[in-house]
């Protein structure tokens, strides 16, 4: 078991040391995705604003939540970041087949390439989110520092989640479509534009048993209330630890086999 983890850690160490490769490739990827457009990657920001604006306009009255704009703006930003990273990760190794079969780059380079892509996309969405918060007059407080810590927890969990889903997708191709559908439904089953309220019911069950709720909470709650959601932080850290353990285990067990299954 020790050698499995040592193998995985070695791959990640090697991958991290080649940061210039994945930073360069991820930057090119984002540029290529918006090639020949006038606004380029600014479309990422505009897409976010269009999405958030639509949700706010349509659901504001029905929900009756104080600072509803802030609630949706932050929640949607976190959701879109996680949703895109997970959806893209399932087909990661399949997309990188030529590289995996033609170079000796460690697998973690591809994991970090996608992590970097997600971070760049997230950066543009964050700019849109902050602009929206400024427009609706959300007041800045010291509590926002907890939101920054929440973002850090999410960022540090991202490579682990990508590894787990990428490994799953390599061995189980149908996972790509399972995940796509789950994430589509997740937009509605996660408290992004609705709240639990004071009662129980289906919404309470969905919020309590949906792990994404806690990732939203560690960023959104500090911005909304200035307080620190300790329980949510604890759950997210625990999920992160499990994901990293699983990622190391899968990487150590299967990283040399990936080349044979693609």
């Amino acid at each position: 078991m020790g050698s499995i983890f040592a193998d995985a850690i070695g791959d990640f160490r090697d991958g991290l040391s080649r940061w210039r490769v994945w930073v360069a490739l991820a930057s090119e990827d984002i540029g290529d995705q918006h090639k020949r457009t006038t606004l380029g990657p600014m479309w990422l920001l505009l897409n976010y604003l269009a999405f958030a604006g639509t949700f706010i306009l349509i659901f504001r009255r029905g929900e009756g939540i104080p600072h509803y704009e802030t609630y949706v703006a932050v929640g949607l930003f976190v959701w879109l970041y996680m949703s895109e990273a997970i959806t893209q990760s399932v087909s990661l190794f399949v997309r990188e087949e030529n590289f995996i079969k033609g170079t000796t780059l460690p697998l973690s380079v591809y994991v970090m390439r996608l992590t970097m892509q997600s971070a760049i996309r997230g950066g543009y969405m964050l700019a849109g989110c902050l602009a929206l918060l400024a427009v609706v007059g959300t007041s800045l407080s010291v509590g926002w520092l907890w939101a920054v810590l929440g973002l850090l927890v999410i960022a540090l969990t991202t490579p682990a989640a990508i590894t787990v889903f990428a490994m799953g997708g390599a061995f189980f191709p149908d996972l790509q479509f399972v995940v796509q559908n789950v994430m589509r439904l997740g937009l509605f089953l996660t408290p992004i534009f609705w709240t639990v309220g004071s009662g129980g019911g289906v919404r309470r069950i969905l919020a309590d048993w949906n792990s994404f709720s806690y990732y939203l909470a560690i960023v959104r709650d500090p911005v909304m209330t200035g307080g620190i959601p300790l329980t949510a932080f604890g759950i997210c850290l625990a999920i992160g630890a499990v994901l990293w353990l699983t990622a190391f285990l899968l990487m150590g067990l299967f990283r040399r086999q990936i080349v044979f299954v693609l």
Binding site: F171, F172, P173, D174, F260, V261
Partner: peptide, 11 residues
């Protein structure tokens, strides 16, 4: 020698 994995699939 490598195993031709029968991928987990719904196919």
């Amino acid at each position: 020698i490598y195993r031709v994995r029968q991928k987990l699939s719904l196919a």
